[in-house]
Design a protein around this nucleic acid. Structure first.
Length: 423
RNA sequence: GUGGGUGUAGCUCAACAGGUUAGAGCACUGGGUUGUGGCCCCAGAGGCUGUGGGUUCGAGUCCCAUCACUCACCCCA
């Protein structure tokens, strides 16, 4: 049995990889317009970092991390998300003191040990953004706007922005108590999972898919009604600025995030076609995380988009993009001709022209077929006859017109012609 | 970790209720007069039917196990 890739981890190759490149390129461009700087961190970190930031009791830490000892016995973990590493790096290098910084982005692989399914893989990739140093609601709105604009620019139109506020530690715990009290009254009626959730993570009961649970939850106290004055004001301003961006959004008081570090603003971007996982991205504010990780008390907001999920959504709507069509396809008939072809090809490539050539000395017919498969418009043919006359034949595959070009002028003429066409 | 579905050619799939050399389309290679592509025609190559057992005179087909893929649950991007 041949060796295959690890479960849940895939090879990305053409033509799909070109879509990846496009998405990444687009993200970089858009980040630049907003003043984000790239921050590349190692994909491996000390396990403790994730345990402390994501939360010891979360599923991610409990059962989804790729954790193993290195040769010295130190426990290491492949990052399951980007925020923790970025915050760690910012603290470590005191990047919060650099006045021109504060907006960071990262693009790269994340790892979670889960059973793969549609839109969920063990190695997956995220576009991640973090803004640190401001507690202002404008920032929350701007970050969400970035995400929505990005989706629009890569061609995803029918996505929904869901938003909620989780409050701060002060208003969250009284709310939690009230919620648990309410849920307990119906304890018997809940599904098995929710019965457990009441004690492990009561907020999660909100997004249970079981009908009877949904019914009960309708009457439950809402987070938004329990916010303290400050949190309420913050949330209202976030919505105010969001309105200014003309992004449409939905208040979703059932929205809960799975990581411990979130407070106040929480949001998710939902799109169809993803199967059971309907979120292409999500994020929120995490004002306490820096302090938690031993840094100064700095507020921050961020989010992540799953590239694989973006691709799934895109696949349904966008047409296949045409890629890699050579500017010129060169055909050589015979060894002598191949020698000439070879040097012309390299010369043209040096002048930034995409040249393909047939490396096998096959019949003209077979080489023409290959040229056609590449979709080449211009084909240059050199055989024994041409060599004798010191020329090459240039055929336009669309018009079917052929012309002769002197061999020693081939490079210049082609460069000129092809560059002119591509303008 | 739990449950369902599926494994036949590079890809998409056939093969009545077990029965001869396991087929088709697309893709691939060559050819249709000597050196000209697409369309069409002809030919060719390509499979230990995921793997290992079992039942049977006989297994792609039935049974068991195992692996892989896939979907869903838990949870998340």
């Amino acid at each position: 049995m041949a060796i295959t890739a690890i479960k849940g981890m895939s090879d990305i190759y053409s033509p799909e990889v070109e879509v990846w490149q496009q998405i990444e390129e687009k993200a970089r461009q858009l980040f630049a317009r907003f003043g984000f700087r790239e921050l590349r961190t190692p994909i491996l970190e000390k396990t403790e970092l994730f345990a402390r930031s994501i939360g010891e009791d979360t599923d991610i830490v409990q059962k989804e991390m790729y954790t193993f000892p290195d040769r010295k016995g130190n426990m290491l973990t492949l990052r399951p998300e980007a925020t923790a590493s970025i915050v760690r790096a910012i603290i470590q290098h005191r990047l919060y003191n650099v006045p021109t910084m504060g907006k960071f982005f990262a693009i790269g692989p994340m790892f979670r040990y889960e059973r793969p399914q549609k839109g969920r893989y063990r190695q997956f990739h995220q576009v991640d953004a973090e803004v640190v140093g401001s507690k202002e609601p404008v920032v929350d709105a701007e970050v969400m706007y970035w995400a929505m604009l990005f989706l629009e620019e890569i061609g995803i139109r029918d996505s929904e922005l869901h938003i909620n506020s989780l409050g701060c530690p002060e208003c969250r715990s009284p709310f939690r108590e009230r919620l648990v009290k309410y849920l307990r009254e119906y304890e018997e009626s809940f599904c098995k999972d929710c019965g457990r959730r009441i004690y492990t993570n009561p907020l999660r009961v909100f997004d249970c898919k079981v009908e009877k649970c949904k019914e009960i939850v309708k009457g439950a106290p809402k987070v938004l009604d329990s916010l303290c004055g400050e949190c309420k004001k913050h949330f209202e301003k976030v919505l105010f600025f969001l309105d200014k961006t003309r992004c449409t959004y939905k208040l979703n008081h059932h929205l809960v995030r799975g990581l411990d570090y979130y407070n106040r603003t929480a949001f998710e971007i939902i799109a169809s076609g993803l199967g059971a996982q309907n979120a292409v991205g999500g994020g929120g504010r995490y004002d306490g995380l820096f302090k938690e990780l031993g840094g100064p008390d700095i507020p921050a907001v961020g989010f992540a988009l799953g590239i694989e999920r973006l691709l799934i959504v895109l696949k349904e709507s966008s047409p296949q993009l045409k890629i890699g069509v050579p500017d010129l396809y060169m055909i050589a008939l015979g060894e002598k001709a191949q020698e000439v072809c070879f040097s012309i090809a390299q010369g043209l490539r040096k002048k930034e022209i995409y040249v393909e050539m047939g490396y096998e000395l096959k019949s003209l017919k077979s080489q023409m077929r290959r040229a056609d498969k590449f979709g080449a418009v211009h084909v240059l043919i050199i055989g024994e006859n041409e060599l004798e006359k010191g020329i090459a034949i240039l055929r336009n595959m669309v018009t079917k017109k052929q012309s002769e070009i002197a061999l020693d002028e081939v490079e210049n003429i082609l460069v000129e012609r092809i560059k002119k066409e591509s303008e």
